[in-house]
Nucleic acid binder design. Structure first.
Lengths: 212, 212
DNA sequence: AAAATTCCGTGGTTTTAACCACGAAACAAA
DNA sequence: TTTGTTTCGTGGTTAAAACCACGGAATTTT
């Protein structure tokens, strides 16, 4: 369980406190097979999940039946935390194991409400959760600003600009993913990048960019 | 201060506890003139604000100097809470009074960390804050899903669909605002709405819609 | 009621991005 | 090395949305 210490949710909690805490929180560990459903759309999210190994997918089923991938979760990431904190009754998404995986799940109630023995880590845990969700908030906010720009060029400039000018930027995406992130079509992105290079605005090779 | 009891942040806190709590939190009240800056971009957000009267604007200054309005805050709304919770050092936005206004500001530290006298409302307050931010999160998430759809029609269907089918939907926007929200151009939205009416998908008069 | 202002729909034009198809490069596997 | 597979750029076409301009309806102000 070396991983646990590195998870944002548990930041600042001493290694030797961890196991007592997990017991107090009613943490459950599960080795799940591919395609196991960890949270079903429509149900009430009551547990915060932590991915320990493998990959989970967050799936949204449209009103007319077609599925879209909302996110892919890697080890160390957590899920259902915002749903729990918001107190939603019916989850809008399904969480399913994309590969065989190991998952930890914690009763949300036990995080929030101090236990009879008033363990010291509750406040820290809540503070961490608050920080995580707030940061996700800001990320969503800034992505929204980017996505709502009105041209591919603006989006690219904003995106690269967020890293800073002049220096080499290693974008953590391939073209397809970058296009998704900016919410444009892949080939349209390629076209625009080529134009911007011609116009002397940027240079790039693969996923390394320099903003002039 | 009747308003305070109705604010999400203070939900569940008894009326008669409120004033003691505010003292404990170091709440400061201010009557500010139009154009007063309440939080300056680049500075460290340390206080959570509550609008008591008037209107505030959240402004973002682009790298190249042009200002955009991120949000307009009405009485009862709070601001800077996500920034504080995320622990950001330099605010990306400025908050400024658009009209003369009355504002309450609370030291974030005092919300988070229980005071020496261990007032009982801290946990409740933090729980409320967590809920507010988590819900904002989900809102952003679902708006993102809408905004990233690839046609005006899809956006409209998704938006109206979120209210439900068959019944009369009173959209809380005029056309311009609705277009902004969907991130499309106003006249393009009008065009598409007209087409959708012709196609028998929707009916509408002004901001009242029915999704068939 | 008249005047002014805001809001909305609509036709027409232009610009842009989506879409499609394909080939070369990069990379991985055999 | 050959083969297969994924990734990316690019030309050409089509579809869609942005943009513009205007007029009438609706609303507010005087």
């Amino acid at each position: 369980m070396r991983l646990l210490g590195a998870i944002g949710l548990f930041k600042g909690i001493k290694e030797d406190e961890l196991s007592a805490m997990l017991k107090c929180l009613g943490a459950e560990f599960a080795n799940v097979k591919r395609n196991t459903v960890l949270l079903l759309a429509g149900h009430r999210p009551q547990r915060v999940g932590v991915v320990l190994s493998g990959q989970l997918h967050i799936i949204k089923e449209d009103y007319d039946g077609n599925r879209t991938l909302v996110a892919a979760l890697e080890p160390g990431e957590i899920f259902a935390e915002a749903l729990c904190c918001a107190g939603v009754e019916h989850s809008p998404v399904t969480v399913v194991a994309e590969t065989d995986a190991k998952v930890m799940q914690i009763q949300f109630e036990r995080i929030l409400h101090t236990c009879p023995s008033a363990c010291g880590f509750h406040t820290k845990l809540i503070e961490n959760m608050l920080g995580l969700i707030a940061r996700k908030n800001l990320l969503l906010q800034s992505r929204m600003e980017m996505v709502t720009l009105h041209s591919v060029r603006e989006k690219v400039l904003r995106y690269l600009g967020s890293f800073g000018k002049g220096k080499t930027i290693v974008v953590p995406f391939n073209r397809e993913q970058m296009a998704d992130y900016l919410s444009v079509e892949r080939s349209a992105l390629s076209h625009e990048l080529a134009k911007m290079k011609r116009d002397g605005l940027i240079e790039y090779r693969k996923n390394e960019f320099i903003l002039r």
